[in-house]
Write a protein that binds this DNA or RNA. Structure first.
Length: 485
DNA sequence: TTTTGAGTTGTTCGA
DNA sequence: GTCGAACAACTCAAA
């Protein structure tokens, strides 16, 4: 190549797959040179984690949509960011590189090293805040340490802090670099879709794009928000936002939602939805300050607690064949749609960790693989919360009774019937605990295990066993402590 | 340093 | 059927 290299600025898309309210994109466009929008798939490389199957399906569709929104100018790569940037640096004069921050421990390590590398090479590189309302390092207790309880974190820490910025408008025009780039990959070459058909069926009903995120919000604002505080507990009703996968991949930002909520009267429903965004912040905050959150019990007193390791139990839970209707409905919703209603997530998590006494990490791994919205921060914080090992966790004796939960939150059985076909015709009086149905009814509907399985474990006994296991652990610890003295 | 009040989402038991 | 108490202490946050 002769002459001077072409000047460009790079906007590195990651977990911010949108044009509106995208600080990195806005600033990249300000340099007055063509912007090269790129995405790098570095899963499994250089210590970066592998994303789950459902997440990759979502990502595939997101990238296709973003490419379209960018007038087909998005350039994809597979490999390590370092290698990609080395190549781009050889080919172009990099005026600046911009990205929006990620907060997983491995991502932080990667980005930190890259920043140093850019600094050593005199390339301007800047990270921006695109996905959190409050940066984790800005919220601290009076004594300077991190909060471990949600309410003071949210009320004192967040609500008294500098308010989140107003969302940025989408750029009116994008001066994108449109030449050919060596080493770029096609979307198919990223191989994000699974080989089985599963990838096709789960995307039904989702518009996986920035416009789709908008539409989802509009629909929720009109039909769910006004009834959110109580309605969000009813899995058979459309009162939850279902925005979580869009938030995870950044097709919509929390700033956009936070600001949009200002347009409504600040009643308890709006307050509650805001606080759910607060929970998302809290999860990221915990992961930032306690990076072992996905791997180790947050509460150290659970060290050495033994879970009843049983692969068959985990497998039947995954397949939605536990014999507990609301649990099976949830697990099947997850498998067939890539999503599970929040109330049911708690029920199935409580059932796995308490009634089946399986390690919360097994549940976490399954959710990571099958949820569209699999988000390391929220997922680890929430599993630990249910298991009782987490921050601000439920007391150990709080074991959900899935029969009562079903009767209370899915009273007409709509949710169960939607997801567990075998139970569609079972009368309501036995829908939540089919093992209690009279013999002839059990035979008629195949509730004796011919169509629908009998319960894996007795609910009452397994509850007592869980409480006993906790007690035993506590006593063992107390004794160990005593013998130290 | 000590003290005080509080802590997302539940269940069971007995009056 | 409804209601309050018990479940078990412990940690956190702030005064």
């Amino acid at each position: 190549m002769t002459g001077r290299k072409q000047k460009i600025a790079i906007c590195w898309f990651r977990r911010d797959l949108r044009l509106a309210d995208n600080p990195a994109l806005c600033v990249a466009l300000d340099h007055g040179v063509p912007v090269l929008p790129i995405f790098i798939d570095d899963q499994g490389q250089d210590g970066q984690p592998q994303q789950g199957g459902a997440s990759n399906v979502w990502l595939h569709n997101s990238l296709a949509a973003l490419h379209k929104d960018l007038n087909e100018s998005l350039v994809l790569f597979k490999g390590t960011p370092r290698a990609v940037f080395e190549q781009l640096k050889a080919e172009f004069e990099l005026v600046a590189v911009h990205w929006n921050r990620m907060y997983e421990p491995e991502a932080i390590a990667r980005d930190k090293a890259l920043k140093q590398w850019f600094a050593d090479d005199d390339v301007e590189a800047h990270s921006h805040n695109g996905s959190l309302l409050f940066e984790p390092w800005t919220i601290e207790k009076k004594d300077g340490g991190p909060y471990k309880v949600f309410t003071p974190f949210y009320k004192k820490g967040c609500l008294n802090a500098e308010p989140p910025r107003a969302p940025l408008k989408a750029p009116q025009q994008i001066n994108a670099y449109e030449g050919k780039i060596d080493g770029a990959a096609s979307l198919d070459e990223l191989n994000l879709l699974p080989t089985r058909d599963w990838g096709k069926s789960i995307v039904e009903g989702w518009d996986i794009s920035e416009a789709g995120a908008r539409a989802r919000w509009d629909d929720f604002a009109e039909n769910g928000l006004f009834n959110y505080k109580e309605g969000r507990d009813l899995p058979g009703k459309p009162f939850v936002s279902r925005l979580s996968p869009y938030l995870h991949f950044g097709q919509i930002s929390p700033h956009q939602l936070w600001a949009a909520l200002d347009h409504y009267s600040q009643d308890r429903n709006v307050e509650h939805f805001r606080s759910e965004l607060g929970w998302r912040e809290f999860s990221y905050y915990l992961l930032y300050h306690f990076p072992t959150l996905p791997k180790e019990n947050f509460q150290p007193q659970f060290e050495g607690f033994t879970w009843a390791k049983d692969e068959l139990r985990v497998k039947r839970w995954q397949q939605g064949k536990t014999g507990i209707p609301i649990v099976d409905a949830g697990m099947r919703e997850l498998w067939t749609t890539g999503y599970m209603h929040n109330r049911v997530r708690m029920i199935v998590a409580s059932y796995l960790t308490k009634n089946l006494r399986q390690d919360w990490r097994d549940g976490l791994a399954w959710f990571e693989d099958t949820l569209f919205d699999a988000d390391l921060a929220s997922n680890s914080a929430s599993w630990q919360w249910v298991a009782g090992t987490g921050a601000d966790a439920a007391p150990y004796f709080r074991v959900f009774n899935p029969v009562l939960q079903g009767e209370k939150f899915d009273p007409e059985g709509e949710y169960i019937r939607t997801h567990v076909a075998e139970l569609r015709d079972v009368p309501k009086s036995y829908l939540f605990a089919p093992w209690e149905a009279p013999k002839e009814m059990r035979e008629k509907y195949g509730l004796d295990g011919t169509k629908y399985p009998e319960p894996m474990v007795d609910l009452k006994k397994s509850r007592q066993d869980a409480l006993a296991a906790y007690d035993a652990h506590k006593n063992a610890r107390a004794e160990a402590k005593e013998s130290e003295i």
